[in-house]
């Protein structure tokens, strides 16, 4: 077990474990330090400089996301100097960021907006330095609008550290630095696997899903595709699935999803091709029937076969309860052990 570390933040005694960063320790102790490039899944980066603090015995203003807690450490998270330095960094970002928040998909869900609000910023004080940047809309599920990018590198770090696909990285220098694909390709030409992990971690409106409907409620469930069993939230609005996000508490996926889970569910669930009525084969082929009639036909016919004449194929895609019911039907009602599933396929 990791060692317990006791230290002080803003005069408050905090207990944390060895290896935790000052920022993480502060956040879990309920002390907010503004941050943008920090993400709990990613290695510390120290790029946005929002989380600077003062630590007794350390020179300057270290970033709390990169400093590990130590016994007896004395941390100060606010003060006029810290505030001014943070505020200037924030103003620099705002001077380089689009101004119309209403026109942004991430309005009210934007972390830059939240930090600005927290810092009490009500106006932009610096000269605008934004220049038009390329937008990549090639991917069917998400787009990259570099005009909104704050270069926190969460996306590129995700692609490197989490998915290890390395489809995106930062290129060029200075304020020409940008998120890019190999040789400035578009997403669809690149090796990107479209998992959307980068989209899930973008704090602003730069990497965003093309589906912009915000759900009115979310339901925690398990993905219906492969056997990893990714825990996910289905977002629902007006009786439809409008969003999917990984559940970071999910033990098998820790919040991650692949292209099918993230982007391949809503559309098939409510697809117009869905079967909506039982069909019974007659002389003119299959015709619609009522549930009652269809079930009666099935029940009546099933009764006519001996246990050796009937076989049941359960689905490896339905729930345990569905499967239990069907094998019970096979054994207890039809009297047969002729029940199998596609486990071997």
């Amino acid at each position: 077990m990791a060692q317990t570390v006791k230290f002080t933040i803003d005069g408050k005694q905090v207990t944390s474990t060895e290896g935790t960063t000052v920022l993480e320790a502060a956040l879990s102790a309920g002390i907010f330090i503004p941050n943008l490039c920090f993400h709990p899944d990613l290695e510390p980066y120290g790029g946005c400089r929002m989380c600077i603090v003062e630590i007794q015995g350390m020179r300057g203003m270290p970033t709390s996301c990169t400093i590990k807690v130590a016994e007896g450490m004395i941390v100060k998270t606010f003060g006029p100097e810290i505030d001014k330095t943070r505020r200037d960094a924030l103003q620099l970002l705002l001077a380089n960021h689009p101004t119309d928040c209403l026109a942004c998909v991430k309005n009210q869900r934007c972390e830059l907006q939240k930090v600005a609000a927290y810092m009490g910023v009500t106006e932009r004080t610096m000269q605008r330095t934004a220049r038009p940047q390329a937008v990549d809309e090639s991917n069917p599920f998400f787009k990259l609008d570099r005009n909104y990018c704050i270069l926190c590198a969460r996306c590129t770090r995700t692609c490197n550290e989490i998915t290890c696909v390395n489809a995106i990285d930062l290129v060029s220098r200075g304020d020409e630095t940008r998120v890019s694909l190999f040789q400035d390709q578009q997403f669809m030409e690149s090796i990107c696997r479209s998992c959307g992990e980068c989209v899930a971690r973008c704090p602003v409106g730069a990497l965003v899903s093309k589906n912009t409907v915000i759900p009115s409620s979310e339901v925690l469930t398990t993905c219906c595709y492969c056997a990893v069993g990714c825990s996910m939230y289905l977002g629902v609005r007006d009786g439809k699935i409008v969003s999917v996000r990984g559940n970071s508490e999910g033990k098998s996926n820790k919040g991650k999803l692949c292209v099918k889970g993230r982007f391949g569910i809503a559309e098939f669930v409510t697809h117009p091709d869905r079967l909506t009525s039982p069909l019974v084969k007659g002389e003119n082929g299959q015709v619609q029937a009522s549930w009652d009639d269809a079930l009666q036909i099935v029940a009546d016919r099933f009764k006519t076969y001996s246990p050796d004449e009937i076989a049941v194929v359960a689905s490896a895609r339905t729930t345990n309860e569905d499967v239990y019911a069907v094998q019970k039907l096979a054994r207890a009602v039809l009297g047969t052990n002729n029940v199998d599933n596609c486990a071997r396929l």
Binding site: A314, A316, T318
Partner: peptide, 13 residues
């Protein structure tokens, strides 16, 4: 392979 292959076997299918 599939989301609930394990479960289908566990459930006696």
């Amino acid at each position: 392979g599939q989301n609930n292959v394990q479960g289908a076997c566990d459930m006696g299918a």
